[in-house]
Design a protein around this nucleic acid. Structure first.
Length: 437
DNA sequence: TATCCTTTGAAGCTG
DNA sequence: CAGCTTCAAAGGATA
């Protein structure tokens, strides 16, 4: 069973993520037992998905010959390459891209499956191995059991890790998972001179070679590291400066007040620094620090049900207060992190764009992951919650909770209103309300 | 334009 | 405390 805490150093105790793996042994057995039954269900439930997956997996060899490679603008590519070179240099200097304290965290943690190309354009042997291990099957039946992983401990609250949403739709973890750069570099569009030309027979869109075409394991060679797109790119581009033009020492720690261990520090610096440098006005943390999990209330209205403030009685001030209050999103859970990272790859492989179908595939692939692979994401999620809680000590999931009253609650509310009106002896309104109810 | 769909997991709520 | 509900992401489909 994987030790997710990375040793005894982490006293934040994420036993919650340990439980699922404990159950996974049983789960795996159940998988084999129920494969046929679940497959039937899957067939009924997501024929579209299966079709897509079958298409992608069965015709890979054909697609490998037909899919085109978009040939990115040579100038922009050169820029990108230049940025990467700079990033690589920084990393080798032990600066910002220094390997994280926590093994398997930040962007060096998980091999970049979507871009398994070395800087010289070749595919590292390790990448082949990893990819092969990563995607042995496309159509793997899902199974239950992971849900038991939820933490039963009250202390879990103290382990919550924060996430704030960035306005640019760059997830806070981007520094951690977007190294896989699904958002920055389409897995299907590596530079033409860096990969074989593979066209999608249907769309003509270039795609990432399927695992069967590529090779598995993806060691993080310096070239591979250099090909990692860093989330700071949006900032650098915004500033009109080259990406990764970061001081050798990286960004200064943005949260001096936070007592963090080394892994936390690496997380914060790698993930949140960009947003702290250019604070969007709407995502300022209470400390004045912008955070990507904060979105404008205009994007999502803050629920008012549970958070009754003193100003609730005066609608105008309440609205103003609501406008000011940023919407702090929930930290992503392990599966969400996995989805975010792998979505682009699945889209490229299956030529599907509908998120519902993509999510079905991702859900099955999630179950097909080994416990070690899942552990990475559980650990990421745990760090997410941990950081989130430190950034927003007072935040609760309740803040974003909008309860849709159940029918009984609606009836109850209706009757309460009726009684109130009766007390007021407002007979006319009582009658009309009675009719409505 | 808004909501739905679809997934898993975390956390809140209810009885 | 078990079970249900909501919300995180994503983007095409649908009303």
């Amino acid at each position: 069973m994987p030790q997710l805490n990375g040793g005894g150093g982490d006293d934040l105790g994420a036993n919650d993520e340990m439980i699922p793996f404990k159950d996974e042994g049983e789960q795996e057995e159940k998988i084999s037992e129920n494969v046929s039954a679940e497959r039937d269900l899957d067939d009924v439930k997501s024929s579209l998905v299966n079709e897509s997956e079958n298409n992608s997996s069965s015709s890979d060899s054909e697609q490998a010959e037909r899919r085109p490679q978009t040939r990115p603008d040579s100038e922009s590519y050169e820029k990108t390459r230049e940025y990467f070179s700079e990033a690589l240099r920084r990393q080798q200097d032990g600066g910002f891209f220094k390997s994280p304290h926590y093994p398997g965290y930040p962007f060096l943690m998980i091999p970049d499956l979507t871009n398994p190309y070395l800087s010289n354009g070749s595919l590292s042997p390790g990448a082949r191995t990893y990819l092969h291990m990563k995607w042995p099957l496309l159509d793997v039946p899902s199974s239950a059991g992971i849900k038991d992983s939820r933490s039963p401990t009250p202390g879990h609250l103290s382990n919550k890790v924060p996430v704030v949403q960035h306005g640019h739709h760059v997830h806070p973890l981007t520094p951690l998972i977007t190294y896989s750069n699904n958002e920055h570099f389409s897995p299907g569009t590596p530079p033409s001179h860096l990969s074989p030309e593979i066209l999608d027979p249907k769309t003509g869109i270039p795609r990432t070679p399927h695992p069967s075409e590529l090779s598995p394991y993806y060691p993080l060679s310096p070239g591979a590291v250099g090909s990692i797109a860093h989330p700071l790119s949006w900032f650098m581009q915004h500033q009109g400066q080259p990406m990764y033009s970061i001081p050798p020492g990286g960004f200064r720690h943005p949260y001096p007040a936070l007592a963090m261990n080394a892994s936390m520090s690496s997380l914060v610096s790698s993930r949140f620094s960009p947003h702290m440098v250019t604070p969007p006005p709407h995502s300022l943390h209470q400390t004045g620090i912008p955070h990507p999990a904060i979105v404008s209330p205009a994007i999502k209205q803050e629920p008012s049900g549970d958070n009754i403030s003193p100003s609730m009685h005066s609608p105008v001030p309440a609205k103003k207060e609501e406008d000011k209050k940023p919407h702090i999103k929930k930290p992503l859970n392990a599966f969400m992190l996995y989805m975010k990272e792998m979505r682009a790859k699945v889209v490229a492989e299956c030529t599907l764009k509908e998120s519902a179908a993509i999510n079905q595939i991702l859900g099955r692939r999630w179950h097909s992951l080994s416990r070690e692979e899942q552990a990475k994401y559980y650990e990421l999620a745990r760090k997410e919650r941990q950081l989130h809680s430190q950034l927003y000590p007072g935040w609760s999931a309740r803040d974003n909770y909008v309860r849709t009253p159940s029918h009984s609650q609606q009836v109850q509310t209706c009757f309460s209103t009726v009684y109130f009106l009766l007390a007021k002896k407002n007979r006319k309104r009582f009658i009309s309300l009675t009719q409505v109810c």
